[in-house]
């Protein structure tokens, strides 16, 4: 599991400075906070509450409403598996099953070594190349379960090599 560490709240000071007096900026603040830490750490949320004078309930309300926000750290490789209609029609469910089988993780889970997380995401807009998944910004298209496994094994192999 990717570890939670104490977060350096100084990292989001510029963000808070920029937005703290602009009404309606909570989502932007949270997006930049997540971009900084990879997720929304509890300390950061209480810090934002204090600086912006927003109730923690409001911040958590927003953070848990939108699919983009995460309250837990994610794995090094975030597999975003498209759940669009075209992907569904072309077998996204089989791809999901293949990932689960290969890595032992379901939607929203992270592998124990912290290497992979899987998230089912809304349509990535590559419908004509379906089914697709995106790993750390790179899109893999016209997947088959087999092709998907190969991609994952390749990444794992590279990671293994880097560790050794």
């Amino acid at each position: 599991m990717a570890e939670k560490t104490t977060v350096d709240l100084g990292l989001i000071a510029p963000v808070l400075e920029e937005y703290k007096d602009t009404p309606g900026s909570l989502i932007a603040i949270l997006q930049k906070t997540q971009a900084t830490y990879g997720y929304l750490p509890e300390e950061a949320i209480y810090h934002i509450a204090e600086v912006t004078g927003t109730a923690p309930a409001t911040i958590y309300g927003v953070a848990t409403f939108y699919a983009q926000f995460r309250l837990e750290p994610v794995g090094k490789h975030l597999i975003m598996l498209c759940q669009g209609t075209a992907c569904h029609v072309n077998g996204a469910e089989l791809i999901s099953a293949a990932i689960t089988d290969e890595l032992g993780i379901d939607d929203g889970e992270t592998t124990e070594d912290g290497l992979f997380s899987m998230e089912h995401v809304a349509c990535l807009g590559c419908c004509s190349l379906s089914p697709v998944m995106m790993i750390n910004g790179k899109t893999y298209s016209t997947l088959t379960p087999d092709k998907c496994r190969k991609v994952l094994r390749e990444i794992a192999k590279e990671e293994g090599g880097a560790d050794a």
């Binding site: 109730a55 923690p56 309930a57 409001t58 911040i59 958590y60 309300g61 848990t64 409403f65």
Partner: peptide, 17 residues
Amino acid sequence: TFIGLYNRGFSTIVNPM
């Protein structure tokens, strides 16, 4: 604003957090 909504859809819950 001590309490608020948490999560969405079927999982929505009232929570102070």
